[in-house]
């Protein structure tokens, strides 16, 4: 084992502990951009930043739905390909709901959405061992206006990739 790969392993281990706590690190939930600042250049197609911004890390849902739309399918195909090509990454899929709904129901709805994305990625060949899901319900809206323009962006599932697949 060369010194370089040792370093990589340490980084990977750190990332695993971070990925077990998506809330504290605010990835994908708290706001656009930001979270990937330290995760490589967008120009590097193997970087999480590339995944987020070029592949597309999120898909949107209709009101009270967890069905994968045609648009979402295109994004998820690209996500699956990227995850297959970059096997060293794991992902947490965050399910979110807009504010029009009761808290508990929205948690359950977010779980459905995250699961729908997970199932799709698995159906495209991504190992389920690399994927986890979490629901935020309506706790972490991205857009804060109380109108459909914002609600539409909040009804989302975000695939947050982190180094350190538990292979």
């Amino acid at each position: 084992m060369t010194p370089i790969s040792k370093t990589l392993l340490v980084v990977a281990a750190l990332a695993v502990s971070a990925c077990s706590n998506p809330d504290r690190f605010g990835m994908g939930g708290g706001g656009a951009g930001g979270a990937y600042g330290a995760n490589g250049a967008v120009s590097d197609p193997t970087s999480p930043a590339y995944f987020q911004q070029t592949v597309g890390d999120r898909v949107l849902f209709a009101v009270d739905e967890s069905t994968i739309s045609e648009t979402a399918r295109v994004t998820l195909e690209a996500q699956a390909r990227w995850l297959m090509d970059n096997a060293e990454y794991a992902a947490i899929i965050e399910g979110h709901a807009d504010e029009q709904g009761t808290r508990e129901y929205n948690l359950a709805l977010g779980a459905r959405r995250a699961n729908a994305v997970q199932e799709y990625l698995v159906s495209r060949g991504v190992s389920p061992a690399r994927l986890r899901t979490v629901s935020y319900g309506k706790e972490r809206p991205l857009e804060i206006c109380s109108a459909e323009a914002c609600y539409a962006k909040n009804r989302r599932a975000v695939t947050v990739v982190t180094a350190g697949a538990s292979s």
Partner: peptide
Amino acid sequence: PGTMTFAPRFGPDGRRVVFSLSQGGNT
């Protein structure tokens, strides 16, 4: 592991708890 739990509430005996558990997207 692999589940989410929420919406807990006590039973009147203070000993039993009823709650929701999500697994595989189903609650």
